[in-house]
Design a protein around this nucleic acid. Structure first.
Length: 596
RNA sequence: CGGGGUGUGGCUCAGCUUGGUAGAGCGCUGCGUUCGGGUCGCAGAGGUCGGAGGUUCAAAUCCUCUCACCCCGACCA
């Protein structure tokens, strides 16, 4: 123990430390220039303010101030989950391969290239956990034997590892990142619905308290699988996801999942005789509209995809109304395959026997699976390609001229189309996915044979849900939403400190004394406050504090000679000059308002 | 993985086309000056020019290979 520092029991162990929070001691290291590798404002600001420092692509060290913010977000998450009676646990990061083969996900994750794998000294294979369904399901299987123990909802806050194909934008898409992952275990679907609803409540509370403008949207379940899923999106132009929403009804969905009511196509009439027309060099829908003086909605384009299943590959043809586009996520789901990719030119030629631009449903290569979007169901007299270079066919009627395709909803919804509930037009926004909740059902418990004994005395698989919050991503998303030209504007709830007391000139004794006094008073009042005692010129100090983004600044400058302090909320920048008592009271008032 | 780009003191960059002495600004250290919106001056520390190989009398510069990082497309918190 260092001399002169008597050890005093902290009144609230685990809470923020009692040592004076002086910026000279807090390892504040800001940069004058923007880091060259930062593209978006939040990344630029976090890096420039020294909150994060890159170690390698997608790997960052969080500095002391950043860690305070991350701890605050975690604390909010814990509070809201605890409120819903979820229980915090801690699972290993290192997972044995056997666990992942038991769910069948090892091969898929390795194939997708997102799994960090390694071996121990005995040659045993492991991975760094990208998510914990396997570990938690095994844990539940070992510890839950009776329906009387259900429901249980377990969570942890821990680093996750994903070898992202393209790490990006600082903490936005890292290869190691902090995630809260929760898993609910219920005895039936009704129980799952209740657990899922509880998590939905908790998530709304978490993101509201973190001060971000978010929207929950219907989502595709992707690789995690399961029945229902909802994403929590922080609205931001730089978001990687596109969402469609309807203000009238509140409908909102990720574009991957979204439905809509497209514009009507003209009536197509009774089937007429098939005609083959020469259309030299007319390949695109736009060219066809001109050539035939026919609206795109009366045509059907045929798009070829290379699809990959766990054990197979194949080419599929997708018919889509000419004015609409294919949603590849929906296509993957319809095919129940791992991935689809647009077929390359050589494949198109092989399957259609024609140059690109003349594909159609008639006479495709043997074994080519034919799908069509639902909007084409019942349509007659379509204009399509002929699978012959420089020819198109008029009056194509599926079922008559070619086998009837499998009809699915394969269409990409677009802004401007009607919401699926018909309440109004869809609008478009971009979002950063900070949370995702899934109804898994029995996917993992069945695969891993994880069961409990029900009231009927028989084994039943757990009905599961899983839930994630990107803690580190949420921090950056908050910055993306809350910044200005001068720097970060942290929401009160997740700022590293709520208030900074700035001593303008640390060589002036009266300013130092005044600053120390205000700092002590605010600390005593339960404000999370720090003291800027750095020897910096006023201009540099103010600029730096604005970059760092503390929500309120209390300035002890030359005014203290006349008992005048300045109170400056970071967001408005509007300064008030007040006497000591009023200034402290005003700061407390601002913090209390900001905490709500 | 495909396409594009960048690697030069702690940070941001110039120098490379046309080979010959490694530079600037910021930051850092010291002295002075200034002192409420990123003062000014002087002095100083700090770089195997991403790495390996090659061409050459001579390579940051030209060639080959390689690694890392960034951006645009398919995945996800």
């Amino acid at each position: 123990m260092p001399p002169g520092r008597p050890r005093v029991a902290h009144p609230r162990p685990g809470c923020f430390p009692i040592a004076p929070m002086r910026l000279t001691k807090l390892h504040v290291v800001t940069l004058r220039d923007d880091p060259a590798d930062a593209e978006i404002p939040s990344h630029r600001l976090l890096a420039r303010a020294g909150y994060i420092v890159k170690v390698a692509s997608g790997l960052y060290t969080y500095g002391p101030l950043m860690w305070r913010t991350l701890k605050k977000i975690s604390a909010i998450v814990r509070e809201e989950l605890d409120r819903e009676e979820a229980l915090e646990v801690m699972m290993p990061i290192l997972h044995p391969k056997e666990l992942w083969t038991s769910s069948g996900r090892w091969d898929r994750y390795v194939a997708d290239g997102i799994l960090f794998t390694l071996q121990d000294s005995k040659g045993g294979e492991f991975c760094l956990g990208p998510t914990h369904e396997e570990v938690i399901t095994a844990y539940a299987d070992q510890t839950i034997t009776s329906y009387k123990q259900l429901p249980v909802n377990l969570y942890q806050i821990q680093d996750k590892f994903r070898d992202e194909v393209r790490p990006r934008y600082g903490l936005m898409r890292g290869r190691e990142f902090i995630m809260m992952d929760a898993y609910s275990f219920d005895l039936d679907d009704a129980g799952l619905d209740a657990s899922y609803a509880a998590m939905d409540r908790a998530y709304r509370a978490v993101f509201t308290r973190c001060g971000v403008d978010f929207r929950s949207v219907q989502a595709d379940a992707g690789a995690i699988g399961g029945a229902g899923s909802e994403e929590f999106m922080v609205i931001a132009d730089v978001g990687e996801d596109e969402i469609l929403y309807c203000e009238e009804s509140g409908y909102a969905a990720n574009v991957e999942k979204a439905g809509s009511i497209p514009a009507e196509a003209p009536a197509s009439g009774d089937p007429a005789d098939l005609e083959k027309r020469s259309t030299p060099d007319v390949k695109s829908v736009a060219q066809l509209e001109e050539f035939f003086s026919m609206p795109a909605s009366a045509m059907a384009k045929t798009v070829l995809y290379q699809a990959t299943w766990p054990e197979a590959e194949g080419v599929v043809a997708v018919m889509m109304r000419g004015d609409l586009d294919v949603n590849e996520v929906k296509l993957v789901n319809a095919l129940d395959c791992l991935a689809v990719v647009l077929a390359d030119e050589a494949t198109v030629k092989r399957v259609t026997g024609a140059e690109v631009g003349f594909a159609g449903p008639i006479g495709l290569a043997e074994g080519t699976r034919l799908l069509a979007d639902k909007t084409l169901a019942g349509r007659t007299n379509l204009l399509t390609g002929c699978n012959e270079t420089d020819f198109h066919c008029l009056n194509v009627n599926v079922g008559r001229d070619c086998p009837l395709p499998e009809f699915h909803d394969l269409r990409l919804a677009r802004a401007g189309e009607q919401s699926p509930d018909g309440a109004g037009a869809l609008k478009q926004a971009r979002g950063i996915e900070v949370g995702h909740i899934f109804k898994l059902g029995t996917k993992y418990s069945t695969a891993m044979d994880a069961t409990f004994i029900g009231e009927d005395g028989k084994p039943h698989p757990f009905v599961m849900g899983c839930y994630g919050i990107g803690v580190s991503r949420t921090a950056q998303a908050a910055v993306e939403q809350h910044h200005d030209d001068s720097g970060i504007v942290w929401p009160f709830s997740i700022a590293p400190f709520e208030v900074v007391v700035a001593i303008v000139d640390v060589k002036k004794e009266d300013q130092v004394a005044a600053g120390e006094r205000a700092y002590a008073a605010l600390k005593e009042a339960g404000i999370d406050v720090c003291l800027d005692d750095r020897k910096l010129r006023a201009g540099a100090k103010f600029k730096d504090l604005e970059l760092l983004g503390f929500p309120v600044r209390l300035t002890a400058g030359r005014g203290v000679a006349d008992d005048l302090f300045e109170v400056t909320p970071r967001e408005s920048g509007e300064r008030e000059d007040l006497g000591y008592d009023e200034a402290v009271a005003r700061v407390i008032e601002l913090v209390q308002a900001g905490r709500k």
